Computed example of a mutant assay.
Amino acid sequence: MNVSKLFLAASTALPLIAGSTIALASDVSLRISDDSVHSQVNVTPNGSNIDLGAGYMYHEGSRHIVNLDLHAKGQTAVGNLPTTAGVGIQATGFDDDSVDGGAVGVGGFARLNIPSVPGLSFEGALHYAPSILSFGDADDLTRVRAQANYRVIQNADVFVGYHYLNADLEGHSDVTLDKGLFAGMKLIF
Rank of each mutant, 00 (worst) to 15 (best):
N2V: 08
V3A: 12
V3M: 11
K5Q: 14
L6S: 14
L8R: 11
A9D: 10
A9G: 14
S11D: 13
L14S: 05
I17E: 04
A18K: 03
S20G: 13
I22G: 10
A23G: 10
S26C: 05
S26L: 10
V28R: 10
S29W: 03
L30C: 07
L30S: 11
R31L: 13
S33T: 14
S33V: 12
N42H: 12
V43H: 01
N46I: 11
N46V: 12
L52T: 03
G53N: 09
A54D: 11
G55H: 05
H59T: 12
S62Y: 07
R63Y: 02
I65G: 07
L68N: 05
L70V: 15
A72R: 10
G74Y: 04
G74P: 02
Q75E: 12
T76V: 07
V78T: 09
N80A: 08
T84D: 06
A91E: 07
T92E: 02
D97R: 14
S98P: 00
V99R: 09
D100L: 06
G101T: 12
G102W: 00
V104M: 13
G108Y: 09
G108F: 04
L112T: 09
I114F: 06
I114T: 07
S116E: 12
S116D: 09
S121T: 02
F122Q: 02
A125S: 15
L126D: 06
Y128K: 00
S131E: 14
S134V: 07
S134I: 06
G136Y: 07
D137H: 09
D139P: 01
T142I: 13
T142N: 11
V144W: 14
V144A: 15
V144C: 09
A146K: 04
Y150F: 08
I153R: 09
V158A: 05
Y162L: 15
L165T: 01
N166F: 11
D168S: 02
D168H: 00
E170A: 14
T176K: 12
T176H: 08
L177S: 07
D178N: 14
L181C: 01
F182A: 03
G184T: 04
L187G: 01
L187N: 00
